[in-house]
Design a binder for these strands. Structure first.
Length: 593
RNA sequence: UGGGGAGUCGCCAAGUUGGUUAAGGCACUGGGUUUUGAUCCCAGCAUCCGAAGGUUCGAGUCCUUCCUCCUCAGCCA
């Protein structure tokens, strides 16, 4: 090693540091992998694992994935990719009552959408915890046989009372010192359906006086007669997360088991369990290690499953894929992109400090990606008519029309230009005209000049108003020598530059303007009901005038509507020839009105 | 109050074995470019690392005490 400091790689974080260290110490140099999950005997038949590390993304299929999961997905799959490893998608389906195929499907879709998969060169790394129930059962018997587990017949209430408190030790269960044979017989009866739900549990036998409550003989198997989405009615006992998760990791030969901070207290049990099972010869070293990072908190958003369910069930939003929701399904309809999420996760980093990320960071990431990716189009969202009074008419009295050329992407000239028609009557944005301009306003105002983007410089001559004083039509005259792209275009310098569509060459379309779902940075903070913080104006459906070419937009295609923002053709409501646009995010606007 | 964590610029976040002027991003502020008040470019932006002591030639990094916040008492995950 040289004494010079090596530059810090981008995206460096404590987990990468741990992995680099583990790898430099050849910690997994002899770790065997038989091509599929299994116990020590199975893995011993394998070869040294080609995957340098193994990580996993282990959602429970009981809900929709949200932006917080995206952070975990990019972390786990990203680490595997960067370190020549493999990341498993594993459904942690150990609680039959809450899980279903619908969620398995939506989660799979979301992971794929973000750009990750589980079909690797020699194996498919898609797993279900429920496929390990046999092995888990064996592990439980092993624990009993080695005197590390017992069947407890206390009621749930008794167990809670005897667990003690944060500051007082718990009391041993009266069933704690039963013989191995007794425990084994009871546990088999549990498995065989001889005991009622809730009548007894299998508990690890550790220490009822441990200062860590998770070590006070945690329950590891419960009796529950429920139909499981994968194993059907095969089992009436199911393992608890505490017990199941470490085993799942070990069977899959995970090296780095990454989870969120609230599981830190669980780590001593994680290690305890795996060591006991390794001692018994069921699992092989090196055992997986758990590392915890801070979960994502985003301002102006709720990410708790409970609150998301409430928003959907009480119909505050249209469904799990409502474009205002922070679910990945919703974000996708909103027009947020996988590349944007990637940028976002890189930008926010990974650490153990609790933090709140400003929602504007996410928006900015989407802008950044969309700016380079999205083609430009012209859309007048709040139309008002502009008449060019001196624009020539044909002999039949109709307006002449001429071609103007608009680049599809100013940063990518290779994407070419498209033709838009200029005529005497145009639609422009209502807010681009002010009869009495406010300070700093440099768009259309009587006597003022502005460029019609890609067209001519025009001079505003006045406006018409209705009985209520609302402006109905704006009038102007054009300067024939100033057409964009001609030598005279720069003869008149103007500061303002407004977009437009020809009345004769535009079509009316529905556009949905989305804003934040919550008006407070921390919804429900303190004693407030988070529902009270809902922004009642989070969606506006408007009638707009769009340039004709937008009719051909395909579902999920994103565009920048010039001077407005990024819009996507809605995945769900668009039909061929009639796309419906959702506003993804506005452009930055530095003009303080 | 017991255990486990975390506190570095408005928001994130590097800083691993103590070594010179504390990375970077976002935001913000100036200036420039620009037919999007967009993008882009350039410059500025912590004498200070929760606080106070201490060790040391030298500390964000070590020690002591204190403060604040998060988290754990499901037969959920």
């Amino acid at each position: 090693m040289s004494s010079e400091k090596t530059p810090i790689p981008a995206g460096s974080n404590f987990i990468r540091a741990i992995i680099e260290k583990d790898l430099s110490q050849n910690k997994y140099a002899t770790k065997k992998w038989a091509g599929s999950p299994g116990d020590a005997a199975h893995q011993d038949t394998g070869v040294v694992d080609v995957a340098k590390i193994r990580t996993r993304f282990p959602p429970e299929p009981n809900g929709y994935l949200h932006i917080g999961h995206a952070k975990s997905i990019f972390l786990n799959f990203g680490l595997a990719r960067d370190f020549d490893g493999i990341c498993h998608l594993r459904f942690d389906d150990t609680n039959p009552e809450k899980e279903s195929q619908e969620y398995v499907d939506s989660i799979s879709d979301a992971v794929k959408w973000l750009g990750f998969g589980w079909d690797n060169t020699s194996e498919t790394n898609l797993y279900f915890a429920s496929n390990y129930f046999d092995l888990m059962y064996r592990a439980a018997e092993s624990l009993i046989e080695t005197g590390h587990a017992y069947v407890d017949e206390q009621s749930a209430d008794e167990m809670r009372i005897n667990r003690g408190t944060l500051t007082e030790a718990g009391k041993d269960s009266p069933y704690r010192s039963r013989s191995v044979a007794d425990n084994l017989a009871r546990f088999r009866e549990m498995r065989d359906g001889k005991h009622a739900d809730g009548s007894m549990v299998l508990r690890a036998k550790i220490d009822m006086a441990s200062p860590n409550i998770n070590m006070r003989d945690p329950a590891i198997y419960r009796v529950r007669r429920a139909h499981h989405h994968n194993t059907g009615d095969q089992w009436c006992i199911y393992p608890m997360y505490t017990f199941a998760h470490p085993i799942e990791d070990a069977l899959e030969r995970i090296t780095h088991s990454i989870c969120t901070l609230e599981f830190e207290d669980q780590r001593p049990f994680y290690d305890w369990l795996l060591e006991r099972l390794a001692e018994a010869g069921l699992l092989a070293h090196p055992l997986p290690k758990q590392y915890e990072f801070a979960r994502l908190n985003l301002t102006y958003v709720v990410l708790s499953k409970r609150k998301l369910i409430q928003l959907v069930e009480e119909k505050h939003v249209s469904g799990w894929d409502d474009p205002r929701l922070p679910t990945l399904a919703g974000a996708r309809r909103r027009g947020y992109t996988p590349a944007g999420f990637k940028l976002f996760t890189d930008r926010i980093g990974v650490s153990k400090a609790d933090s709140w990320i400003e929602y504007s960071i996410l928006e900015d990431c989407m802008r950044e990606v969309l700016n380079t990716d999205a083609e430009r189009r012209i859309a007048v969202l709040d139309p008002i008519k502009l008449v060019i009074d001196n624009y020539p008419l044909d002999s039949d009295g109709k307006s002449q029309s001429e071609d103007c050329f608009a680049p599809n992407h100013p940063l990518k000239p290779e994407l070419g230009k498209r033709t838009v028609q200029l005529t005497k009557e145009l639609w422009i944005e209502r807010e681009d005209f002010m009869e009495t301009p406010s300070k700093g306003f440099f768009r259309l105002t009587p006597g003022g000049m502005v460029r019609l983007r890609y067209g001519y410089v025009v001079k505003c001559t006045g406006c018409e108003k209705d009985a209520d004083g609302n402006v109905t039509v704006v009038h102007c005259e054009y300067l024939p020598d100033t057409k964009s792209g001609t030598p005279g275009s720069d003869s008149v310098k103007v500061k303002g530059n407004i977009h437009w569509v020809s009345v004769a060459h535009a079509y009316e379309a529905e556009v949905r303007l989305y804003d934040r779902l919550f008006k407070e940075a921390h919804p429900g903070e303190g004693d407030r009901d988070f529902l009270a913080d809902i922004n009642q104006d989070s969606v506006k459906v408007i009638k707009t005038q769009l340039e004709l070419s937008l009719k051909d937009a395909k579902a999920e295609e994103s565009f920048q509507f010039e001077r407005h923002g990024y819009f996507v053709a809605d995945k769900k409501d668009s039909v061929a020839g009639k796309p419906v646009f959702n506003r993804t995010v506005t452009l930055r606007d530095a003009w303080q009105k």
